[in-house]
Computed example of a mutant assay.
Amino acid sequence: MKVKQSMIDKELRATGTFIKLINNTFTENRFKFFNKLTRKFKHKMIDSAIDTEIKWIVRPDGTKLRLCIFKPLVPKADVPGILWLHGGGYGLGVPEQSTAMFKSLIEASDCVVVAPDYRLSVEAPYPAALEDSYLALLWMKEHIETLGIRENQLMVGGESAGGGLTAALTLYARDRGDVAIAFQMPLYPMIDDRMDTVSAVNNNAPVWNSKSNYNSWSLYLGDLFKTNNVPYYAAPARALDYTYLPPTVTFVGELEPFRDETIAYVKKLKEAGCKVDFKIYEGCYHGFDIVCPKAKVSREAKEFLMQAFKYAVDHYFANQPTQKGNINDQSQSTK
């Protein structure tokens, strides 16, 4: 899908042009470069209006996973718990880059956000990121009382690759049966390694194009890339069964590579009986709400997300399984 300048929302054009000039396409070396840059300045991304705490938990192999915990300066009890997975094409980024999102979620609900610094594809390909995400989810469930969160209101969200991990994690959690997720927020998710939809082919939009998408999936999947053996935990668009997944909110830009795979994902969720709030924003490229937060369309997208989130806080709950393997018996309740 060829994207012309005239197709882009007027408030997004200048920023899109600038981004294409400084980094038109992500390559493996650029993933590594920008990853070093974000890690170097991660502390400057933190907002003093919310409390930030760092925890380290041990992986099965003995290495440690860093968790960033964000909560109100004056913590409340009995609040939603959100696992948030940052974006970055599976190959770059840190939890702190989503601090603006954490602040909005906390202001809306006094929630506690747990954000894992999951292993990136430039360090370890799939399934490393998913394993870290699931380990963090289990840790959050096991520390409900300490964190002050509701046992029946564990939520998961993320943007881009983090949205892909969100979609993968809800499938994985459903199948494992260890933890029930009440609500998911996979924003413009990266979920289809086949890259054969109209929006994904020959897309030259700013921020994220077809070449970046190809390079990212190649790094993330490693030896699985371009094979028929890619599991749906790596690329959730490959899943055939979307039953028993939590209520969902998502949105996507009209001009980005992930448009069509997001549309298909939403359609499959609805066909499986899942409640979904979904919008497509015209004239928008990937991550428009992050790179141009003050644009009218970005503010509209944020308001749409926050309204859906607030509704979820009041209405969506999922009781934790009493024994392993019975997630399918745990229906999402509405109050």
Rank of each mutant, 00 (worst) to 15 (best):
M1T: 12
S6F: 01
K10N: 14
K10E: 14
E11P: 09
E11C: 05
T17N: 00
N23S: 10
N24K: 15
E28A: 10
F34K: 04
N35Q: 07
F41A: 10
H43T: 13
M45S: 04
I50Y: 01
E53D: 08
V58H: 09
R59Y: 01
G62E: 10
G62S: 10
T63E: 08
R66P: 02
R66I: 06
R66D: 05
L67M: 02
L67W: 01
F70D: 01
K71C: 00
L83E: 06
L83C: 06
G87F: 00
G89E: 00
G91P: 04
G93S: 06
G93E: 00
V94Q: 04
S98D: 15
K103W: 00
S104I: 07
I106P: 01
A108K: 13
D110Q: 13
V112F: 09
V113I: 15
V114W: 05
S121H: 02
S121I: 08
P125G: 02
Y126S: 04
L130F: 01
D132C: 11
L135C: 07
A136D: 06
L137H: 04
H143F: 12
H143C: 03
I144S: 13
I144A: 12
E145D: 14
T146W: 03
I149V: 15
I149R: 06
Q153T: 11
Q153K: 15
M155W: 09
M155I: 14
V156C: 05
G158F: 09
S160M: 05
T166P: 04
T166I: 06
A168S: 15
D175K: 03
D178M: 14
A180E: 07
A182G: 10
F183Q: 08
Q184Y: 08
L187G: 02
N203A: 13
N203V: 10
N203W: 04
N204M: 09
A205R: 00
N209E: 12
S212E: 04
L221G: 04
L221N: 06
L224A: 05
K226A: 10
T227R: 08
N228D: 15
P231N: 02
R238G: 07
R238L: 12
Y244N: 15
L245G: 12
V252E: 01
V252N: 03
E254L: 08
E254F: 12
E256F: 07
P257T: 01
F258W: 12
Y265P: 02
V266R: 00
V266Q: 07
K268V: 05
K275D: 02
V276A: 09
Y281H: 09
E282P: 14
G283C: 12
H286D: 11
P293S: 03
K294Q: 11
A295N: 02
K296N: 09
S298R: 06
S298K: 11
A301R: 00
A301L: 13
L305Y: 03
H315D: 12
F317A: 10
N319S: 13
P321Q: 03
